[in-house]
Design a protein around this nucleic acid. Structure first.
Lengths: 331, 331
DNA sequence: TTATTTTCCGGCAACGTTCCCGACAACGAT
DNA sequence: ATCGTTGTCGGGAACGTTGCCGGAAAATAA
């Protein structure tokens, strides 16, 4: 490998370590003459500073940890894409971890990120997380954390979210305007922040349009395919909805499959709307209108916010919550 | 942050640095007595070794670079998922980069991975890459590289690929058995290794079934949506295929959209088969049989191979090419 | 001329870790 | 009593950087 160090340059040029170091950082203490020599030689031998040594010296790693429930999920991978685009511009690199929706893994992963000396963290919480002491203890150490999408119920922290309430409201309103009366809501487990907010939006839209909220039409559904089958079957058999508002990518896939495979006649005429970033939404067997989250942009915003915090390490950056609008796509 | 060092422990216990270090690494040179003390104290103060200092000392970073064309592509994110699962088991962390299909970015990204002192690299080449000098120069420095999916035409290197020839053969044969005679082939740009291999499989299947290869039915298509529209329109208007074999995730999406929007009658009866990892293939408006690559497994194999190379740093690991089977999923 | 400031550079320590080398007991063997 | 052994530990250097301190030569001021 190419392992030329500052010392090698110093020896070759017959000058000292620190002179080389300063010349390379364009210090005013070094004459233009020697600067030129050093830079020329460094380029000739293809010198690159050793980032590990720099990290040790500066106590910074120029890496940011990203923790998501699943990488192989279109929504999250788009977010990562956005994070990456901003981070690489600022010469940070992105180290990705996944929890697979496990609380245990979330704890150990955060621990790992900390001990690996990442400069900061961008995270979306796992499904199982309903205790936040691991978060609090990391935050008490002044470790910079940006939450996105699935955020904890903590006041003073940095958050990037989409306007779930409004998105769900729009989706529900759209179904109402299409003449639907019994709009079922299939959503993620109730611990998640997004679940609560979307549910609130759904209920508000119903109330504002004088439709009574029927709790029987609201179903929390796990992410296993069979969960969706059970929920869909029960719903269609007993509740007779005329439409369904499904939240989240994975639920949408599972539910669509369950609906497609449901033998009853009612399943054929269901109006469907999803809260999802599925790229194939317009190619499905049944047109699927969607609320689409600005995933890439959320990643960008989260990364920008984190880097702002990192760069202004001494001044305090006020905690803020960035709320992005969702888009209603009618198909 | 929690920044206790070996020195802190040494001072607190009134022993030397090196004794602490050795005690923590369970050296035989240290008495069980002091070992126990050190370990107990380390645990009490929640000591974690500083990986950056270790990296500097050992000249290893315990990180592996992964370069893909696009993160937000289901195939690649599943591969990354596989890589991550193996790497994290071995305490390596995964640093992800994307080229956005740009040759320039591929070069600079590899340079970045090298200067960031990753221990090794797993890469799938960009679309534009048809010169391999950047690869060669990295390999000459003995930098461990594993290629997957889109591999370079280099003999002596580590590769993980799927059996593209066989996959394309199976897909084409399947269409023939369904009675199709004019099977068009829409595929990625011809520089890619996967393009050539799949094309060869396609042709072989036709020949083996006494169907003449019609070069007019073979279309190379870029990844922009409009590219697919142009290709599909031309095909349907002039070549009258009775079925289409589309390669790659992104092409499949674009082509399906183009076909769906094509006004002609012929487009309705087209038999379709894709070479893709689309999760929604069974939910599309038209049933899409697919050749499915074992993406997760490819990631696993690539990571396992890389780690094997890294761990046996002195002995030479023979270059090898791992070929994984594809699955024909009929819908 | 002498005094004072610049200009330019080298020496050294430090970041946290590991490893080589040597030291100094205690021990049994000669 | 002397000599090697064994067990246990400390000192110091090194990984590649950067920053502080100080110092010699050159330039300017007196």
């Amino acid at each position: 490998m190419n392992n030329i160090t500052i010392k090698d340059i110093a020896n070759a040029l017959g000058i000292s370590n620190s002179t080389v170091s300063r010349a390379l950082r364009d210090s005013h203490e070094i004459s233009e003459d020697t600067k030129a020599k050093v830079i020329a030689y460094a380029k000739a031998v293809n010198y690159h500073p050793n980032p590990i040594a720099q990290s040790l010296r500066e106590n910074k790693s120029y890496s940011i940890g990203v923790i998501v429930p699943e990488i192989a999920n279109n929504y999250f991978s788009e977010v990562i894409n956005g994070i990456d685009s901003v981070a690489s511009q600022h010469d940070y690199h992105v180290v990705i971890y996944q929890t697979h929706e496990s609380y245990e893994r979330e704890i150990s992963t955060i621990q790992h990120v900390l001990s690996r000396k990442a400069d900061g963290l961008i995270i979306s919480l796992s499904l199982e997380t309903n205790d936040y002491s691991h978060i609090h203890s990391a935050m008490e150490d002044n470790f910079p954390i940006i939450f996105f999408d699935r955020v904890p119920p903590i006041e003073n922290c940095y958050k990037v979210v989409s306007d779930n309430y409004e998105g769900a409201y729009k989706a529900t309103k759209h179904m109402i305007e299409k003449g639907k009366k019994r709009i079922a809501h299939i959503t993620s487990p109730p611990v998640l922040s997004i679940t609560k907010e979307r549910l609130a939006g759904y209920k508000a839209a119903l109330k504002d349009n004088n439709i009574e909220v029927d709790d029987q039409l609201i179903k929390y559904c796990g992410f296993e395919p069979k969960d969706a089958f059970v929920v869909i079957d029960e719903l269609i058999k007993n509740q007779k909805p005329d439409s369904i508002f499904v939240c989240s990518d994975r639920l949408a896939l599972n539910c669509l499959e369950a609906i497609k495979n449901n033998p009853s006649e009612e399943s054929k005429d269901l109006g469907l709307i999803g809260y999802t970033n599925l790229k194939t939404a317009n190619l499905l067997y049944t047109p699927l209108s969607t609320i689409r989250q600005p995933a890439f942009e959320m990643g960008e915003k989260a990364a920008e916010l984190l880097i702002k915090v990192l760069k202004s390490k001494n001044q305090i950056v006020d905690f803020e919550t960035i709320i992005l609008k969702n888009e209603l796509i009618i198909r």
